[in-house]
């Protein structure tokens, strides 16, 4: 199942929509893993879209690459990781023409980071669409050491930088593209509940 309905939450938590083809001369699509499916559906809705599109895809172990390439986008790039792709994303955004339409799809971490880049490049938020697909993992910032732990699937989890046991908050920072993780056993050291899978 690649589509997941997130439960209603607090006001800092992002909400995602469904990508739809927009009118425009240039289209930038950034996706990871199952986000590819959203792009395939997008292409199916508008046969003229791909000729004006630049796709940046991070497979994360999936094999959608050939299907995306077969859409014949104007430009296609496959990156081994978001970190490896971010310089390219920045460059494309910095050199974007007025009216560039941005489509972000896949995991929250991918969308959050790419959205941040787009906003910093001055793309108005009304030109940015998002659609969640695939893993519900979260990108978490440890409020104590400030380190980011990617792909967190359980609550609580261990900070990959400082090793504290952190609980997963819904409070979200767009600037950091991360949720907040806070020490769970500060008031009762060592009493760390069994990790539970998110949304289970």
């Amino acid at each position: 199942m690649s589509k997941f309905q997130f439960p209603e939450s607090i006001k800092s938590r992002p909400v995602y929509g469904t990508l739809e083809p927009r009118v425009g001369k240039f289209h930038l699509m950034i996706a990871d893993a199952e986000g590819a499916e959203a792009i395939l559906e997008l292409a199916a809705q508008d046969s003229a879209l791909m000729a004006k599109s630049h796709i940046i895809f991070i497979p994360n172990g999936t094999d959608y690459g050939d299907q995306l390439k077969a859409l014949n986008p104007a430009q296609y790039y496959e990156g081994p990781s978001y970190a490896a792709s971010v310089q390219r994303i920045r460059h494309v955004l910095a050199n974007a023409h007025q009216g560039l339409q941005v489509y972000l799809t896949g995991t929250e971490g991918l969308m959050g980071q790419a959205q941040n880049e787009a906003m910093q490049a001055g793309i108005p938020h009304t030109f940015i669409q998002t659609e969640h697909r695939g893993s519900v993992a979260r990108r978490m910032q440890c409020v104590h050491c400030k380190g980011i732990t990617e792909d967190v699937m359980t609550d609580p989890f261990v900070c990959s930088h400082c090793g504290l046991n952190l609980f997963v908050r819904d409070h979200y920072s767009r600037r950091l593209a991360a949720y907040q993780g806070v020490c769970i056993d500060a008031e009762d050291p060592g009493n760390v509940p069994e990790p539970v899978e998110l949304y289970k």
């Binding site: 607090i10 006001k11 800092s12 910032q141 908050r169 767009r174 600037r175």
Partner: peptide, 22 residues
């Protein structure tokens, strides 16, 4: 609450964790 985390947020976002008031 953390300035570093809330920096750049708007009024509704930084108040998100407050119960009942919204």
């Amino acid at each position: 609450w953390s300035l570093d985390f809330d920096l750049g947020m708007n009024f509704f976002e930084w108040h998100a964790p407050v119960p009942l008031a919204h």
